[in-house]
Design a protein around this nucleic acid. Structure first.
Length: 518
RNA sequence: GCUCCCGUCAUCCAGCGGCCCAGGAUACCGGCCUUUCAAGCCGGCAACGCGGGUUCGAAUCCCGUCGGGAGCACCA
């Protein structure tokens, strides 16, 4: 396979979810693995659903994942435009030519009538597809419908008999009986193109030679293959599509482009209930994972594993370059894949541990900013604090978003004391005594390091005949306000000694009962 | 209803006729470690849907059956 052209073509409604991201990724991987071209095309033919915000969100999601496109909106390319809403003249020209050639016909049923008919068909156990009622209308009948004020849709007349065999790269040959393929709509009553038309036309016009998409489109393939053949069939030495392209002044197809694309239908992504993944399954938007602090390369890793595996039966955690090097569409499996969020978190934790400190700090910045703990570019002091905590955080977080709450106390001037922690570790027991003893012990320390602080604590343990927990928890709560923090000596060492001492004294006066007599 | 696709531990993946009384990962359970929370380390549980073939030999090939999913839109 030489320099393939592949595409991802989202419909801009809603967010980029993991299913779409997986499809985009597989196409992108295929392009990168074979030195090909990754085209991004926005399929916004349905004016009622497509939104600008959604499109921007999709682009952001793809960029977050690092799936950069070679041709597409905002980067351009030789075969644009890359938004279908800007190509409607082409679809109209193609549709008209299809009609003129007798491959398509006008159908006058209204959406309501078809709906009702579908309901009846379902109730009676008949296939709900269009039966072809208007396929052979006479000129007079058409005129009569028009007189009623009806505007027709255009339907493609599918073959009367025989079978269509699609040789799917992943599934092998798939055979479908033409009798089971209804005459489908290619142009709506308002003249706009449907997916079948626009998608097929553009794949051809943009030289897409490999189509990797969700399995839910497997049954659409025979129609698109048939449509492709009609578009490419030569008439007067020129294919219908080429004539239409020239008519509307869009770039011509390149000579080297092959006739029809190879198809690769990817297994469905499912939720825990084994149903097609949808918003019902909780957070499936790429943006949401980004917000939670999932690393993009980890999301890519997990997405890659949804249907594909390197095949050695062992390796699962892979870097993006490794995936590119090993990926092969032909090795994609056929059974539905479950997008496992637990596994994602686990891998993410591992990846965070593997990051070097500077890199981790950098990635943490937006999350600390979001939490209101640092300024937009962080102040030098804030950055230093972040870098000092990064190694401690690294060991215990699975997502970046988990970091700020763990060390918020170090960035805030005021400590937010947690009621339960105070009640358990300060307001009872020997907390007052412990703090009173700890203050001078820490104040008198020569070095302010984790080692020396730990030594001081151990000294206190011996003096007071208490375990480390009994000594350190009151101090932790006094300084952090919570019973949970990174390891205490290291944490204290990161803070200014004065801050620590002040907080201990304040907490002792504010929360502890006066030391009991004996 | 019809058509198509799929069927290995709870979950995902490996397995392409002998290397499999089935391997890895996540989850779960237990232990160790321990200054909190995690992490880490060690160990454990646990699957070839079922029935027939083919074969010296089947998770792997064939048929049937059952189960699951997708599609049959003026959505993509």
């Amino acid at each position: 396979m030489s320099a393939p052209r592949v595409r991802f073509c989202p419909a801009p409604s809603g967010w980029l979810h993991v299913g779409g991201a997986r499809t985009a990724l597989y196409n992108w991987l295929h392009a990168r693995a074979h030195d090909g071209t990754f085209v991004l095309r926005i399929e916004d033919t349905d004016a009622e659903r497509a939104t600008e915000a959604s499109m921007l969100g999709m682009l952001d999601g793809l960029r977050f994942l690092g799936l950069h496109w070679d041709e597409g909106p905002d980067v351009g390319g030789a075969h644009g435009p890359y938004r279908q809403s800007e190509r409607s003249a082409l679809y109209a020209a193609v549709a008209r030519r299809l009609l003129e050639a007798g491959h398509a016909y006008e159908a006058f049923e209204t959406a309501e009538e078809l709906d009702a008919e579908r309901g009846r068909a379902r109730a009676e156990g008949r296939p709900p597809g269009y039966g072809g009622a208007h396929r052979h209308l006479t000129e007079a009948q058409r005129a009569a419908y028009r007189e009623e004020g009806r505007t027709p849709v255009l339907r493609l007349a599918t073959p009367e008999g025989g079978t269509s065999v699609v040789d799917d790269l992943i599934r092998g040959p798939v055979e479908v009986d033409w009798a089971d393929v209804p005459d489908f709509v290619i142009a709506r009553a308002d003249g706009s193109a449907t997916y079948y038309l626009a998608n097929t036309v553009d794949d051809l016009a943009q030289g897409i030679d490999l189509v990797a998409r969700g399995e839910d489109l497997l049954s659409a393939t025979p129609r698109q293959r048939y449509l492709s053949e009609l578009l490419l069939a030569e008439d007067d030495g020129r294919a219908l599509l080429d004539a239409a392209l020239a008519e509307v002044g869009l770039p011509a197809r390149e000579p080297g482009w092959g006739p029809v694309a190879t198809y690769a239908h990817l297994p469905m992504l499912v939720g825990e209930d084994r149903k097609k993944l949808s918003k019902r399954h909780g957070s499936v938007a790429v943006e949401e994972f980004a917000r939670q602090g999932i690393l993009p390369e980890v999301l890519v890793n997990l997405l890659a594993l949804c249907g594909w595996s390197p095949g050695d039966g062992k390796t699962e955690q892979l870097s993006v370059p490794e995936i590119v090097a090993r990926f092969d569409l032909a090795r994609v499996g056929r059974n539905p894949a479950y997008f496992d969020v637990d596994k994602l978190r686990s891998f993410n934790g591992d990846a965070i541990k593997a990051l070097d400190v500077a890199e981790l700090s950098e990635r943490l910045v937006p999350f600390f900013f979001e939490a209101g703990l640092v300024a937009d570019p962080p102040q030098p002091g804030e950055r230093a604090l972040l870098e000092a905590f990064a190694p401690l955080l690294q060991e215990r977080i699975q997502t970046l978003a988990e970091a700020p709450p763990l060390v918020a106390f170090a960035f805030a001037d005021e400590v937010a004391y947690e009621e339960k922690a105070v009640a358990k570790h300060l307001a009872k027991g020997r907390a007052a005594e412990v703090l009173a003893a700890a203050e001078p012990a820490l104040a008198d320390l020569g070095d302010w390091t984790a080692e020396s602080i730990l030594e001081a604590f151990d000294g206190l343990c011996a003096d007071l005949e208490l375990g480390r927990g009994k000594v350190m928890q009151p101090v932790r709560v006094a300084v952090a306000g919570t019973a949970v923090s990174p390891p205490l000596p290291e944490t204290l060492a990161v803070l200014e000694r004065e801050t620590v001492l002040t907080r201990m004294r304040d907490a002792r006066e504010r929360f502890t009962a006066p030391a009991a007599g004996s």
